[in-house]
Design a protein around this nucleic acid. Structure first.
Lengths: 170, 170
DNA sequence: AACATAAGTTCAGCATACTGAATAATCAGG
DNA sequence: CCTGATTATTCAGTATGCTGAACTTATGTT
C-alpha cells in the first residue's frame, strides 16, 4: 500500500546519484524540521490534558519567574517574535492562564503576569513536559544525548542573530 | 537597552534553582525549535531571489526525481501531512513550478510533475540551498558536524512514527 | 446492481512564525 | 511645548503544520 506507482519508482542509482548523495535525509534543515515535528507530537501526547502548547509552556515558565515582564523581554527570552507573541499572549489570556496590565510609567508597555490558574496548570504539567523533552532525545544513549544537546545549544548560540527573535544570551 | 525592568530581574539563585536546572536553553524541544527558526532564516537569506521555501524546495526535489508522483507518496517522502501538502502544492502550482493531473486509472489521485520552469528554478537555487543547509551546522567543527547530523538522523528515524507525517524509511 | 468500506484529497479551523505597515506612547532637542 | 525620532505593540497578509470532518472515487461483497 505504501508502494510508489511505477512512474514514481526510485530511479536507477547512476541516473540520480547526485540526488542520493544529497538526499533529504542528509540535509540538516530537513532533519531539524522533522525532529521538531516529532517533538511537537510527543509534547501534544504528554500534555494533551492541559491544552498548552510547547511555546505557550515556555512563555508560562518564563513569565512565572519574571512577574510583570513586558512582552518584548518575554519574546527575547523565549525566542518568539513580537507579532507571534501577541497572538500567543491573546490565547493564554483567553484561557485565563495569564493577565495583562499597562505599565503605569510607560503606557506603551504590557506587563504579563501568570494567574493562579496558570501557576496551577504549570505545576500540574511539569512532569509531562519534562517527559516530552526527554522522549525527544531518549533514543540516544546517555553520553550521546548530552553531547547532542550540547551541539544543539552551541549551534543555537552561534546562529542566535538569525531569525526575527534572537535570544538574549548572557 | 536589553535590560529587564526591575520587576523582571533574574530571581535569586536559591529561590528558583530548579528553574535554572531546567532552563529553556537546556530543553531539547526548545533548542530544536530555535535551531529550526535559524535554519528558516538562513534558507530565506540564501534563497530570497527564488521565492521558494524549504518545504517547497524539498517537495520540488522529490517530485523532480519521481515524475507523476501522487500527493500521498510525496507527503510520505517529505514528511508533510496531506492537508499541509495540498496547500503547498497549490502555491507551487500558482507559481508555475509544478503541474497537476488526474491519474487515468484512479481519478481520486493527483499526479504531480515539475514544470520546465520548476526544473530551471531547482537548478538555479541548488547552490544556495546547499549553503543554507551547511551554514545551519557550520559553527561545529567538521567531525562534530558529521556526528551531529548522524544523531539527528538517528533521532528522526527513532521517532518516525510520531507526528502526522511519518517518513517512509526504507 | 446495491451496499458498505476504504482510499485520496480537500475544507474548516486553530497554532506558530515571519514581514512590513500602522498605531500609540514616550523621549530628546530645540 | 513642539517636533521628530524611538520604542512597544498591533494589524494584515503569507507560509507551515496539525486535527477532524466532508467529499469524491474505487473496491469488495453479496
Amino acid at each position: 500500500m505504501n508502494d510508489l506507482p511505477d512512474s514514481a519508482a526510485p530511479p536507477s542509482a547512476d541516473a540520480t546519484s547526485s540526488f542520493y548523495r544529497n538526499h533529504l535525509s542528509h540535509r540538516a534543515g530537513f532533519l531539524i524540521r522533522r525532529l521538531h515535528q516529532i517533538h511537537l507530537s510527543l509534547f501534544a501526547e504528554e500534555c494533551a490534558d492541559f491544552g498548552v502548547t510547547p511555546v505557550q509552556y515556555s512563555i508560562l515558565t518564563v513569565a512565572a519567574v519574571h512577574p510583570d515582564i513586558d512582552q518584548a523581554s518575554l519574546g527575547h527570552e523565549v525566542g518568539v517574535d513580537r507579532a507571534t507573541l501577541a497572538n500567543v499572549i491573546a490565547r493564554l489570556k483567553a484561557h485565563g492562564l495569564i493577565s495583562r496590565s499597562k505599565k503605569a510609567t510607560d503606557r506603551r508597555v504590557n506587563l504579563i503576569r501568570v494567574t493562579a490558574r496558570g501557576s496551577a496548570v504549570l505545576a500540574q504539567m511539569d512532569g509531562a513536559a519534562q517527559r516530552a523533552h526527554e522522549r525527544t532525545v531518549a533514543a540516544l544513549p546517555e553520553n550521546e544525548r548530552a553531547l547532542f544537546i550540547s551541539y544543539l545549544s552551541y549551534l543555537v548560540e552561534a546562529g542566535n542573530e538569525h531569525g526575527r527573535a534572537p535570544l538574549r544570551i548572557g
